[in-house]
Amino acid sequence: MLGVTVWGLALGQALLITGNILLVSVTALIGQKLAPSLSLATLPIATQFLGLMGITLPAALMMRALGRKKGFFIGNLVGIIGATIAFYALKSENFVLFCFATLLLGMAIGVGQQYRFAAIENAPNDKTPQAISLIMGAGVIAAILGPNMAIWAEFMVPDTQYLGAFAALLVLYIFTTLLILVLPLRQPTHEEQTGTPRSYKTLLKQPNLVAAITSGVIGYAVMTLVMTATPLAMHGHGFHFGHTATVIQWHVLGMFAPSFFTGKLIQKYGTTKIIQSGCLLLLTCVILNQFGSGYWYFWTALIFLGIGWNFTFIGATTLLTKTYEPADKAKVQGLNDFLVFTGATIGSVLAGYWQNVFGWEVLNILMIPFIVAAMLSVWVSARKQLSI
Protein backbone atom coordinates (compact mmCIF):
# COMPACT_ATOMS: atom_id res chain seq x y z
CA MET A 1 0.00 0.00 0.00
CA LEU A 2 1.13 3.53 -0.76
CA GLY A 3 0.99 5.69 2.38
CA VAL A 4 -0.41 9.14 3.11
CA THR A 5 2.92 10.79 2.29
CA VAL A 6 2.91 9.48 -1.30
CA TRP A 7 -0.71 10.56 -1.74
CA GLY A 8 0.15 13.99 -0.32
CA LEU A 9 3.06 14.31 -2.73
CA ALA A 10 0.70 13.33 -5.54
CA LEU A 11 -1.58 16.22 -4.56
CA GLY A 12 1.44 18.54 -4.51
CA GLN A 13 2.38 17.31 -7.97
CA ALA A 14 -1.18 17.88 -9.18
CA LEU A 15 -1.12 21.49 -7.99
CA LEU A 16 2.33 22.04 -9.49
CA ILE A 17 1.26 20.71 -12.89
CA THR A 18 -2.01 22.67 -12.73
CA GLY A 19 0.06 25.84 -12.48
CA ASN A 20 2.38 24.65 -15.22
CA ILE A 21 -0.46 23.90 -17.62
CA LEU A 22 -2.05 27.24 -16.83
CA LEU A 23 1.28 28.81 -17.84
CA VAL A 24 1.45 26.74 -21.04
CA SER A 25 -2.08 27.85 -21.95
CA VAL A 26 -1.36 31.58 -21.69
CA THR A 27 2.38 32.29 -21.78
CA ALA A 28 2.98 31.99 -25.54
CA LEU A 29 -0.07 34.17 -26.21
CA ILE A 30 1.12 36.75 -23.68
CA GLY A 31 4.55 36.62 -25.31
CA GLN A 32 2.95 37.17 -28.70
CA LYS A 33 1.21 40.25 -27.29
CA LEU A 34 4.18 41.77 -25.42
CA ALA A 35 7.22 40.68 -27.46
CA PRO A 36 8.83 43.19 -29.84
CA SER A 37 8.96 40.44 -32.51
CA LEU A 38 6.79 37.38 -33.23
CA SER A 39 9.91 35.20 -33.28
CA LEU A 40 10.29 36.03 -29.56
CA ALA A 41 6.73 35.01 -28.67
CA THR A 42 7.88 31.83 -26.93
CA LEU A 43 10.85 33.46 -25.16
CA PRO A 44 8.95 33.59 -21.83
CA ILE A 45 8.42 29.84 -22.12
CA ALA A 46 12.11 29.42 -22.95
CA THR A 47 13.15 31.41 -19.87
CA GLN A 48 10.78 29.25 -17.82
CA PHE A 49 12.56 26.14 -19.03
CA LEU A 50 15.92 27.85 -18.59
CA GLY A 51 15.09 28.38 -14.93
CA LEU A 52 13.87 24.80 -14.68
CA MET A 53 17.01 23.46 -16.35
CA GLY A 54 19.40 25.56 -14.29
CA ILE A 55 17.90 24.61 -10.93
CA THR A 56 17.73 20.83 -11.41
CA LEU A 57 21.21 19.85 -10.19
CA PRO A 58 21.30 22.47 -7.38
CA ALA A 59 17.81 21.31 -6.31
CA ALA A 60 18.94 17.69 -6.04
CA LEU A 61 21.98 18.71 -3.98
CA MET A 62 19.80 20.98 -1.82
CA MET A 63 17.47 18.06 -1.11
CA ARG A 64 20.46 15.96 -0.09
CA ALA A 65 21.75 18.66 2.29
CA LEU A 66 18.49 20.04 3.73
CA GLY A 67 15.95 17.28 3.20
CA ARG A 68 12.81 17.21 1.08
CA LYS A 69 10.59 19.37 3.32
CA LYS A 70 12.91 22.39 3.43
CA GLY A 71 13.80 21.96 -0.23
CA PHE A 72 10.17 21.92 -1.39
CA PHE A 73 9.36 24.86 0.90
CA ILE A 74 12.10 26.96 -0.72
CA GLY A 75 10.94 25.95 -4.20
CA ASN A 76 7.35 27.00 -3.52
CA LEU A 77 8.52 30.28 -2.01
CA VAL A 78 10.31 31.05 -5.28
CA GLY A 79 7.06 30.21 -7.09
CA ILE A 80 5.12 32.70 -4.95
CA ILE A 81 7.64 35.42 -5.78
CA GLY A 82 7.59 34.53 -9.50
CA ALA A 83 3.78 34.60 -9.73
CA THR A 84 3.69 37.98 -7.98
CA ILE A 85 6.26 39.49 -10.37
CA ALA A 86 4.44 38.01 -13.40
CA PHE A 87 1.21 39.65 -12.25
CA TYR A 88 2.92 43.04 -12.05
CA ALA A 89 4.83 42.56 -15.33
CA LEU A 90 1.67 41.76 -17.30
CA LYS A 91 -0.22 44.63 -15.71
CA SER A 92 2.58 47.04 -16.70
CA GLU A 93 3.13 45.32 -20.11
CA ASN A 94 6.83 44.78 -19.35
CA PHE A 95 8.10 41.94 -21.56
CA VAL A 96 11.57 41.73 -19.98
CA LEU A 97 10.17 41.59 -16.45
CA PHE A 98 7.64 38.97 -17.55
CA CYS A 99 10.49 36.81 -18.87
CA PHE A 100 12.26 37.18 -15.50
CA ALA A 101 9.07 36.10 -13.73
CA THR A 102 8.76 32.97 -15.85
CA LEU A 103 12.45 32.24 -15.10
CA LEU A 104 11.58 32.18 -11.38
CA LEU A 105 8.47 30.09 -12.04
CA GLY A 106 10.61 27.66 -14.00
CA MET A 107 12.94 27.35 -11.01
CA ALA A 108 9.96 26.55 -8.77
CA ILE A 109 8.76 23.92 -11.25
CA GLY A 110 12.30 22.48 -11.40
CA VAL A 111 12.37 21.96 -7.64
CA GLY A 112 8.93 20.37 -7.90
CA GLN A 113 10.29 17.75 -10.30
CA GLN A 114 11.75 16.12 -7.18
CA TYR A 115 8.23 15.10 -6.08
CA ARG A 116 8.51 11.86 -8.04
CA PHE A 117 11.83 10.98 -6.40
CA ALA A 118 10.45 11.86 -2.95
CA ALA A 119 7.50 9.52 -3.64
CA ILE A 120 9.92 6.70 -4.50
CA GLU A 121 11.72 7.22 -1.17
CA ASN A 122 8.46 7.10 0.79
CA ALA A 123 7.06 3.98 -0.92
CA PRO A 124 7.91 0.28 -0.42
CA ASN A 125 10.77 -0.90 -2.66
CA ASP A 126 8.49 -3.18 -4.70
CA LYS A 127 6.05 -0.32 -5.37
CA THR A 128 8.41 2.04 -7.19
CA PRO A 129 6.61 1.96 -10.60
CA GLN A 130 3.24 2.42 -8.87
CA ALA A 131 4.55 5.36 -6.80
CA ILE A 132 5.86 7.06 -9.93
CA SER A 133 2.58 6.34 -11.72
CA LEU A 134 0.51 7.79 -8.87
CA ILE A 135 2.60 10.97 -8.83
CA MET A 136 2.28 11.34 -12.60
CA GLY A 137 -1.38 10.27 -12.55
CA ALA A 138 -2.11 13.25 -10.33
CA GLY A 139 -1.68 15.29 -13.50
CA VAL A 140 -5.23 14.26 -14.45
CA ILE A 141 -6.42 16.79 -11.89
CA ALA A 142 -4.17 19.34 -13.56
CA ALA A 143 -5.58 18.46 -16.98
CA ILE A 144 -9.04 19.43 -15.74
CA LEU A 145 -8.11 22.40 -13.56
CA GLY A 146 -5.28 24.01 -15.55
CA PRO A 147 -6.95 24.92 -18.87
CA ASN A 148 -10.28 25.65 -17.18
CA MET A 149 -8.55 28.00 -14.74
CA ALA A 150 -6.91 29.70 -17.75
CA ILE A 151 -10.31 30.17 -19.45
CA TRP A 152 -11.99 31.30 -16.23
CA ALA A 153 -9.19 33.74 -15.39
CA GLU A 154 -8.75 35.11 -18.95
CA PHE A 155 -10.92 38.15 -18.28
CA MET A 156 -11.16 37.94 -14.48
CA VAL A 157 -9.44 41.34 -14.44
CA PRO A 158 -11.42 43.25 -17.11
CA ASP A 159 -8.71 45.66 -18.22
CA THR A 160 -5.89 43.12 -18.74
CA GLN A 161 -6.35 39.79 -20.53
CA TYR A 162 -4.86 36.75 -18.71
CA LEU A 163 -3.90 38.80 -15.61
CA GLY A 164 -6.21 36.72 -13.43
CA ALA A 165 -4.24 33.59 -14.35
CA PHE A 166 -1.31 34.75 -12.25
CA ALA A 167 -3.53 35.59 -9.29
CA ALA A 168 -4.79 31.99 -9.50
CA LEU A 169 -1.21 30.72 -9.81
CA LEU A 170 -0.23 32.60 -6.65
CA VAL A 171 -3.05 30.89 -4.72
CA LEU A 172 -1.87 27.48 -5.96
CA TYR A 173 1.67 28.06 -4.73
CA ILE A 174 0.49 29.28 -1.32
CA PHE A 175 -1.72 26.20 -0.88
CA THR A 176 1.10 23.84 -1.94
CA THR A 177 3.48 25.49 0.54
CA LEU A 178 1.04 24.78 3.36
CA LEU A 179 0.62 21.18 2.18
CA ILE A 180 4.39 20.56 2.22
CA LEU A 181 4.69 21.91 5.75
CA VAL A 182 2.30 19.25 7.13
CA LEU A 183 3.54 16.21 5.17
CA PRO A 184 5.78 13.73 7.07
CA LEU A 185 8.64 13.44 4.54
CA ARG A 186 11.51 11.02 5.08
CA GLN A 187 14.87 12.59 5.97
CA PRO A 188 18.01 11.73 3.93
CA THR A 189 19.95 8.78 5.33
CA HIS A 190 23.49 9.07 6.69
CA GLU A 191 24.80 7.17 3.66
CA GLU A 192 23.00 9.50 1.23
CA GLN A 193 24.46 12.59 2.88
CA THR A 194 28.00 11.41 3.66
CA GLY A 195 28.72 8.64 1.13
CA THR A 196 31.14 9.20 -1.75
CA PRO A 197 29.33 9.18 -5.11
CA ARG A 198 30.90 7.56 -8.15
CA SER A 199 32.27 9.75 -10.94
CA TYR A 200 30.08 10.68 -13.92
CA LYS A 201 32.43 8.68 -16.14
CA THR A 202 31.85 5.54 -14.08
CA LEU A 203 28.11 6.11 -13.78
CA LEU A 204 27.66 6.65 -17.54
CA LYS A 205 29.26 3.29 -18.29
CA GLN A 206 25.94 1.75 -17.26
CA PRO A 207 23.81 0.95 -20.34
CA ASN A 208 20.61 1.43 -18.33
CA LEU A 209 21.60 4.97 -17.34
CA VAL A 210 22.41 5.89 -20.94
CA ALA A 211 19.05 4.49 -22.07
CA ALA A 212 17.13 6.27 -19.32
CA ILE A 213 18.69 9.67 -19.97
CA THR A 214 18.51 9.43 -23.77
CA SER A 215 14.85 8.44 -23.91
CA GLY A 216 13.93 10.94 -21.21
CA VAL A 217 15.70 13.83 -22.96
CA ILE A 218 14.34 13.21 -26.46
CA GLY A 219 10.83 12.28 -25.33
CA TYR A 220 10.51 15.43 -23.24
CA ALA A 221 12.10 17.70 -25.88
CA VAL A 222 9.81 16.46 -28.67
CA MET A 223 6.72 16.76 -26.48
CA THR A 224 7.64 20.27 -25.30
CA LEU A 225 8.43 21.58 -28.78
CA VAL A 226 5.21 20.31 -30.38
CA MET A 227 3.06 21.28 -27.38
CA THR A 228 4.54 24.80 -27.21
CA ALA A 229 4.04 25.36 -30.94
CA THR A 230 0.44 24.13 -30.86
CA PRO A 231 -1.23 27.33 -29.50
CA LEU A 232 0.64 29.37 -32.14
CA ALA A 233 -0.31 26.96 -34.92
CA MET A 234 -3.96 26.89 -33.87
CA HIS A 235 -4.04 30.67 -33.57
CA GLY A 236 -2.59 30.91 -37.08
CA HIS A 237 -5.38 28.67 -38.38
CA GLY A 238 -8.05 30.90 -36.86
CA PHE A 239 -8.99 28.97 -33.71
CA HIS A 240 -10.02 30.97 -30.67
CA PHE A 241 -8.47 30.60 -27.22
CA GLY A 242 -11.19 28.26 -25.93
CA HIS A 243 -10.41 25.74 -28.68
CA THR A 244 -6.70 25.92 -27.94
CA ALA A 245 -7.21 25.50 -24.18
CA THR A 246 -9.42 22.45 -24.78
CA VAL A 247 -6.81 20.79 -27.03
CA ILE A 248 -4.14 21.44 -24.39
CA GLN A 249 -6.46 20.01 -21.75
CA TRP A 250 -6.91 16.75 -23.64
CA HIS A 251 -3.20 16.65 -24.37
CA VAL A 252 -2.50 16.85 -20.63
CA LEU A 253 -5.04 14.10 -20.00
CA GLY A 254 -3.09 12.02 -22.51
CA MET A 255 0.10 12.86 -20.62
CA PHE A 256 -1.16 11.78 -17.21
CA ALA A 257 -4.27 9.57 -17.37
CA PRO A 258 -2.30 6.50 -18.59
CA SER A 259 -0.16 6.80 -15.44
CA PHE A 260 -2.73 4.78 -13.52
CA PHE A 261 -1.73 1.68 -15.50
CA THR A 262 1.72 2.53 -16.90
CA GLY A 263 3.41 1.16 -13.77
CA LYS A 264 1.65 -2.18 -14.17
CA LEU A 265 2.55 -2.29 -17.87
CA ILE A 266 6.21 -1.73 -16.95
CA GLN A 267 6.09 -4.55 -14.41
CA LYS A 268 4.53 -6.87 -16.99
CA TYR A 269 6.45 -5.97 -20.16
CA GLY A 270 9.60 -4.20 -18.94
CA THR A 271 10.85 -0.64 -19.33
CA THR A 272 12.39 -1.06 -22.79
CA LYS A 273 9.14 -2.12 -24.46
CA ILE A 274 7.15 0.64 -22.79
CA ILE A 275 9.68 3.31 -23.80
CA GLN A 276 9.71 1.98 -27.37
CA SER A 277 5.92 2.04 -27.44
CA GLY A 278 6.01 5.64 -26.28
CA CYS A 279 8.34 6.55 -29.13
CA LEU A 280 5.97 4.91 -31.63
CA LEU A 281 3.11 7.02 -30.26
CA LEU A 282 5.22 10.17 -30.67
CA LEU A 283 5.81 9.16 -34.30
CA THR A 284 2.06 8.67 -34.73
CA CYS A 285 1.50 12.24 -33.54
CA VAL A 286 3.93 13.88 -35.96
CA ILE A 287 2.72 11.78 -38.90
CA LEU A 288 -0.93 12.57 -38.13
CA ASN A 289 -0.12 16.29 -38.19
CA GLN A 290 0.76 15.94 -41.89
CA PHE A 291 -2.82 15.12 -42.87
CA GLY A 292 -4.70 18.26 -41.89
CA SER A 293 -5.01 21.31 -39.67
CA GLY A 294 -8.62 20.98 -38.52
CA TYR A 295 -9.60 20.96 -34.87
CA TRP A 296 -9.86 17.16 -34.63
CA TYR A 297 -6.42 16.70 -36.18
CA PHE A 298 -4.90 18.91 -33.49
CA TRP A 299 -6.96 17.18 -30.79
CA THR A 300 -6.08 13.62 -31.80
CA ALA A 301 -2.41 14.29 -32.47
CA LEU A 302 -1.93 16.04 -29.13
CA ILE A 303 -3.48 13.08 -27.28
CA PHE A 304 -1.00 10.72 -28.97
CA LEU A 305 1.78 13.17 -28.07
CA GLY A 306 0.70 13.09 -24.42
CA ILE A 307 0.49 9.29 -24.15
CA GLY A 308 3.82 8.90 -25.95
CA TRP A 309 5.46 11.25 -23.47
CA ASN A 310 3.88 9.37 -20.55
CA PHE A 311 5.34 6.03 -21.62
CA THR A 312 8.79 7.43 -22.36
CA PHE A 313 9.02 9.57 -19.20
CA ILE A 314 7.70 7.05 -16.65
CA GLY A 315 9.68 4.27 -18.35
CA ALA A 316 12.86 6.36 -18.26
CA THR A 317 12.32 7.39 -14.62
CA THR A 318 11.75 3.77 -13.57
CA LEU A 319 14.88 2.69 -15.41
CA LEU A 320 16.85 5.49 -13.77
CA THR A 321 16.07 4.20 -10.26
CA LYS A 322 18.01 1.02 -11.07
CA THR A 323 21.25 2.86 -11.83
CA TYR A 324 22.40 4.41 -8.55
CA GLU A 325 23.44 3.59 -5.00
CA PRO A 326 22.30 5.84 -2.08
CA ALA A 327 25.46 7.99 -2.29
CA ASP A 328 24.90 8.47 -6.04
CA LYS A 329 21.23 9.42 -5.76
CA ALA A 330 21.44 13.23 -5.79
CA LYS A 331 24.15 13.21 -8.45
CA VAL A 332 22.28 10.91 -10.85
CA GLN A 333 18.86 12.51 -10.28
CA GLY A 334 20.33 15.98 -10.74
CA LEU A 335 22.23 15.00 -13.91
CA ASN A 336 19.18 13.31 -15.39
CA ASP A 337 16.85 16.24 -14.75
CA PHE A 338 19.45 18.75 -15.95
CA LEU A 339 19.77 16.96 -19.29
CA VAL A 340 16.05 16.25 -19.65
CA PHE A 341 15.09 19.86 -19.06
CA THR A 342 17.94 21.14 -21.18
CA GLY A 343 16.25 19.24 -23.99
CA ALA A 344 12.90 20.74 -23.00
CA THR A 345 14.42 24.23 -22.95
CA ILE A 346 15.89 23.78 -26.42
CA GLY A 347 12.50 22.56 -27.61
CA SER A 348 10.68 25.57 -26.18
CA VAL A 349 13.24 27.97 -27.68
CA LEU A 350 12.93 26.41 -31.12
CA ALA A 351 9.13 26.12 -31.07
CA GLY A 352 8.27 29.70 -31.93
CA TYR A 353 11.15 30.11 -34.37
CA TRP A 354 10.51 26.86 -36.26
CA GLN A 355 6.76 27.51 -36.34
CA ASN A 356 7.38 30.92 -37.96
CA VAL A 357 10.12 29.75 -40.33
CA PHE A 358 9.02 26.24 -41.36
CA GLY A 359 5.32 26.01 -40.50
CA TRP A 360 3.42 23.36 -38.57
CA GLU A 361 3.84 20.39 -40.91
CA VAL A 362 7.61 20.73 -41.41
CA LEU A 363 8.13 21.37 -37.70
CA ASN A 364 6.55 17.99 -36.99
CA ILE A 365 8.60 16.21 -39.67
CA LEU A 366 11.78 17.50 -38.04
CA MET A 367 10.89 15.49 -34.92
CA ILE A 368 11.15 12.12 -36.68
CA PRO A 369 14.98 11.69 -36.68
CA PHE A 370 15.14 12.47 -32.95
CA ILE A 371 12.42 9.97 -32.07
CA VAL A 372 14.08 7.27 -34.17
CA ALA A 373 17.42 8.06 -32.49
CA ALA A 374 15.79 7.57 -29.07
CA MET A 375 14.37 4.20 -30.11
CA LEU A 376 17.74 3.04 -31.43
CA SER A 377 19.57 4.22 -28.33
CA VAL A 378 17.23 2.36 -25.99
CA TRP A 379 17.43 -0.78 -28.12
CA VAL A 380 21.24 -0.71 -28.30
CA SER A 381 21.59 -0.02 -24.57
CA ALA A 382 19.20 -2.85 -23.72
CA ARG A 383 21.20 -5.23 -25.92
CA LYS A 384 24.42 -4.23 -24.17
CA GLN A 385 22.80 -4.78 -20.79
CA LEU A 386 21.77 -8.29 -21.81
CA SER A 387 25.30 -9.12 -22.92
CA ILE A 388 26.88 -8.14 -19.58
Rank of each mutant, 00 (worst) to 15 (best):
M1E: 04
A10K: 04
A10E: 09
L16R: 06
G19V: 01
S25N: 13
A41I: 04
Q48M: 12
L52C: 03
G54N: 01
G54D: 00
I55Q: 02
L61E: 12
F73E: 11
G75T: 02
A86Y: 08
A89Y: 08
C99F: 07
F100S: 11
A101H: 04
T102F: 12
L103E: 01
M107F: 06
A108V: 06
Q114W: 01
T128P: 07
Q130T: 15
S133L: 10
L134M: 14
A138R: 08
G139C: 05
I141H: 01
A143G: 12
I144S: 12
P147W: 05
Y162I: 09
A168K: 09
A168I: 15
L169Q: 13
I174T: 11
T176P: 06
H190D: 13
Q206A: 12
A212H: 01
G216V: 05
I218D: 03
Y220N: 01
T224W: 02
T228P: 05
A245V: 14
V247F: 03
H251F: 10
M255S: 07
S259L: 07
F261Y: 14
Q267T: 14
C279P: 02
L281D: 11
T284P: 07
N289Y: 07
S293T: 11
T300K: 02
T300V: 14
T300R: 04
A301R: 11
F304N: 04
V332L: 12
A344R: 00
G347V: 00
A351D: 02
N356H: 09
I368V: 15
I368W: 04
P369A: 05
F370L: 12
V372A: 11
M375S: 09
V380Y: 14
S381L: 13
L386E: 15
L386P: 03
S387V: 13
